[in-house]
Amino acid sequence: MAEKNIYLPYLMRVAKVTDEAPAVKTFRLEFVNPEDADNFDFNTGQFGLYSAFGEGESTFCIASSPTRKGYIECTFRAVGRVTHALAAKEEGDIIGFRGPYGNLFPIEEWRGKNLLFVAGGIALPPLRSVIWNCLDQRDGFRDITVVYGARSVADLVYKYELRDWQERADIDLAVTVDPGGETHDWKGKVGFVPPIVEQLAPRSENTIAIVCGPPIMIKHTLPLLETLGFTSDCIYTTLENRMKCGLGKCGRCNTGRSFICKDGPVYTLAQLQELPAEY
């Protein structure tokens, strides 16, 4: 009785490399084996382990939408051994992918609601998957608002898509950079994300807020949303702990009663408040 090797990755060809920001890249990945492509499916919010053969695996979310078939995209910053090795890959190179792992953003439950996305820095990718997913089925949702901020103009990711969204009438986008991070021709906002959200004062009724960003942004944004009337079960975020297996076995991602790789990475604020702050 041959069992499957759950640690064996899919082989993926790097089909396209996009430089997003300093040390940040987006890969479009296609399955080397067409059969894998046919059988593969995922949900927004899920993640994977990407291997640079020779160096190891690293965890990040799938940044593309499941509505776009045949490929996946991921966006990452080169910080450690594996991400640096990945960043050195070029179009045509082969990397590994294990996944999809983890739970999902319950967008089916959000149908008919307003959506407010708040993202900071390199944390836009997990939300981008949701945003595209919702835009691709635009009729299903009411107002879609996105507030996105980064340290500087250069640090903004998906600049080409931000321009696109800016022009679309069916999505409200506010892009901001930290004071001092603007260029002379910057037309967006200047300021930290939380005050910008405060200015916009989005309606909380019938609205789901999806927040993702550096700890400091999260720390200031969550209480603000609560004052705006968002209840803790209508605020979602996604966690990124260190992971090794993605399968609920290696113990690395364990935080409180939760295994982030199995029970997460998507949590409502209400669920998060139940966990110790070990992330």
Partner: peptide
């Protein structure tokens, strides 16, 4: 205790993944 690490050992031509 079952917590484990996954480590890579490789040269330029071949490698293995170890738990």
């Amino acid at each position: 205790c079952v917590c484990f690490d996954i480590q890579e050992e490789a040269d330029t031509k071949q490698g293995q993944r170890l738990r």
